[in-house]
């Protein structure tokens, strides 16, 4: 955002144009906007909104004996099945791991974002690019890299054995999954936090110190409340994908650590219980929509 010029009101144009002409103009402009948006509108309606609706419909359907789905005879069986022990264990585990991931990301990212926001413009831009690169590099590959590091005879184990700590057994544990999730989603926390801290007027912090606030007080009473939108945005952006994560638990968690994402995939590709899988997806979407509402209430903006 290098351009600071703002549009001034087109008062000079309005002075010449009659109100009628203005109204015609306005209507034309609206129609033009609609035509421009129409292709993407239609595309997203067909290939996003309809699929979304189909998932909800399927969640009320019945699975027949052959693994197919019976769309007649709507019922709530799939939602009732959510109360089962196995499902509950998967749900609880997913939520717990997602919360842990979010908290760790927040703790690491906040000081980092603050540090970055207080650097010179040049350093700041460089630091930002260095965060962006892993952010957009292949997610699968980044998880696989941890598989290599954490393996029984991988580099980490070699190091700990040389030091005399014995071999490490991180791979296929929940710790490994959290590590992979933090690694994957850390930039989602850093970027919105940075954006919101960077916007804070540094003079407010100065003023609080002038009024004899200690560093801790100034942090708690000034910096923290002002950066709240960033905290909320970052937490949601980390929590949602962590909750739905599929690739990370499969690669780093092994068979024992099934999370919600993997469980949903199993319903479709292996168990062939599509209505139940659809119900699980619907739950995930409802959580996501709830989080989005919170996000906008807190005055968040898109990334």
């Amino acid at each position: 955002m290098t351009d600071t010029t703002t549009r001034d009101d087109s008062a000079d144009a309005a002075a010449v144009a009659t109100p009628e002409l203005e109204a015609v103009n306005e209507r034309q402009k609206r129609r033009r906007g609609l035509w421009l948006a129409l292709p993407a509108w239609v595309y997203l309606a067909v290939f996003f909104a309809i699929p979304l609706a189909i998932v909800f419909v399927y969640s009320f359907a019945t699975r027949n004996r052959f693994g197919g789905t019976d769309l007649s005879g709507w019922n709530l069986d799939s939602y009732r099945a959510l109360g089962g022990d196995l499902v509950r264990a998967v749900l609880v585990r997913s939520v717990v791991l997602a919360v842990i991931t979010t908290v760790i990301c927040l703790v690491i990212s906040y000081p980092f974002a603050y540090f970055m926001a207080t650097r010179s413009t040049r350093t700041r831009n460089l630091m930002l690019v260095m965060v962006m690169i892993p952010f957009w590099t292949n997610f699968l590959v980044r998880n696989y890299a941890w598989y290599v590091i954490l393996g029984t005879d991988g580099p980490l184990s070699t190091i700990t054995e040389t030091v005399g700590l014995g071999e490490t057994r991180f791979l296929f544990t929940q710790t490994a999954v959290v590590l992979g999730l933090v690694y994957g989603f850390l930039p989602f926390m850093i970027l919105p936090l940075y954006a919101s801290i960077e916007r804070i007027d540094g003079r407010l912090l100065e003023a609080s110190r002038d009024l004899y606030a200690t560093g801790a007080q100034s942090f708690r009473r000034v910096l923290l409340p002002l950066s709240m939108p960033g905290i909320v945005a970052g937490s949601i952006l980390v929590f949602i994908p962590s909750l739905g994560a599929y690739v990370t638990p499969v690669i780093l968690g092994g068979a024992k650590t099934t999370l919600l994402g993997g469980y949903i995939v199993t319903q479709f590709l292996e168990a062939r219980n599509w209505p139940f899988g659809a119900a699980l997806s619907s739950v995930l979407m409802i959580i996501m929509l709830g989080a989005t509402v919170v996000y906008f209430r807190k005055g968040g903006q898109t990334l």
């Binding site: 290939f47 996003f48 979304l52 952006l237 599929y246 919600l260 599509w274 659809a278 997806s281």
Partner: peptide
């Protein structure tokens, strides 16, 4: 805005059923 925040698993399920 939705496709950006929806988890990929959910989007995958949507496309599969569709």
């Amino acid at each position: 805005y939705l496709p950006i925040i929806i988890p990929d698993v959910t989007m995958a399920v949507m496309m599969l059923l569709f």
